[in-house]
Nucleic acid binder design. Structure first.
Lengths: 208, 208
DNA sequence: GCTTGATTAATACGTCCGTTTTATACGACT
DNA sequence: AGTCGTATAAAACGGACGTATTAATCAAGC
């Protein structure tokens, strides 16, 4: 499966490595596979990114930062439209999921799979990275959701939030496999349908 | 963290390997780490289980088969109690999640984390194993859920089912980290609370 | 008591890993 | 033209990996 690679070799490495990490995990990908597929010299990773861990971190931070930036921007937009009252659940769920299902044009959605992979892999050296990149967005979305369930005990609310996040990540990760799992009834390229269903699902699950 | 190991060395390998695979994934665990922690000789894995892949498969099949056996048993019990009508959503969700959150006494719940890990790791050589072990249970549960949403388009229903499964797996995998994520508001040992919340969540999300 | 089959132990093999080192090519500037 | 910082290339390093081989141990059965 040949793909149009960027001219710059550092960019080629980032591009190829992201796809491979998303598919096989950190430990499952060797620098030799990356450099071979990116058609660069073996030492190029160490030259441009210092070492394998740094390359991984760079890819991750880039993706996570962009995704959460978009999420917060969409949420802020919805809040501005709403005024002082609680933002509608539909808008919150949309802001949370849209950057995953419908990534900004040009970035491609293959990289999105990384997110789900990472959270279940829990490499020790990226724990802090995940905390730093996710914490701000998650507290903001938590607050927004919370206004729709003010009476719920805190732990119960946090459990429901965790379920919603889990549903989202699982959907993103398994999206490419959905046609096989559903005998073709769910298509992998129907991101809009996936987003719509996630929003419906979340609204029903979190509505009081 | 010393743990009481079984006498038999093959059992010790299974016990230790399951915990390590659950924590670091297949590629992230070496036979040397397993055999060292299990206090057996390096060659013991190859002697008792032929090779690393076979050891992995054996652990997985054991866990998955038992979990899905319990799930189907609970579902059958609920169906018997219900008669001809649709099984209440509460009972279906309970049958689906209980074997994960409250594993049969003696088995310990550390091994349960494997499940969530596996589904996001997607090693090629266990794809068929997963299909074989999960297919029967999933179609049965799908049918049971389906009776509560007969009017929904098939693809929409399958998406919701996927979200429920994702929420469940994510909860299981991140259960040990919940206290840290929630500043202690959700406890890792409160499996009963997690189960109760999952059932509530699923009922709300799938009710028509 | 010796033999036999099953287990454990010790060690070696070949491969692949991440990384380092050394050498070569290229472009811009004086 | 010549120099210098940057990028690519080629090769090698030590170490960890999964696995294979061989030797030691040990518990029955005769």
């Amino acid at each position: 499966m040949p793909q149009d690679l960027p001219r710059d070799s550092a960019q080629r490495i980032l591009h190829v490595a992201e796809a491979l990490f998303a598919q096989h995990g950190y430990a499952g990908v060797s620098l030799r596979k990356i450099t071979a597929e990116a058609k660069v010299n073996l030492a190029a990773v160490n030259y441009h990114f210092y070492d394998k861990e740094s390359l991984y971190r760079e890819i991750l931070t880039g993706r996570l930062r962009e995704i959460n930036r978009q999420r917060l921007a969409l949420l802020a937009l919805a809040e501005a439209r709403t005024g002082d009252g609680p933002v509608p659940l539909v808008a919150i769920a949309d802001a949370l999921a849209r950057p995953l299902f419908l990534p900004a044009s040009g970035t491609g959605n293959a990289g999105t799979r990384l997110l789900g992979r990472i959270l279940s892999e829990r490499q020790a050296f990226i724990d802090e990275l995940i905390r730093v990149e996710f914490q701000p967005a998650m507290t903001r979305f938590g607050q927004a959701f919370r206004r729709h369930a003010p009476g719920l005990p805190p732990s119960d609310f946090l459990w429901r939030l965790s379920f919603v996040i889990g549903a989202l990540h699982h959907a993103v990760v398994t999206l490419p496999d959905m046609p096989a799992h559903t005998q073709g009834l769910c298509r992998a390229d129907d991101c809009a349908g996936a987003l719509r269903n996630f929003i419906d699902f979340t609204v029903k699950a979190l509505a009081t």
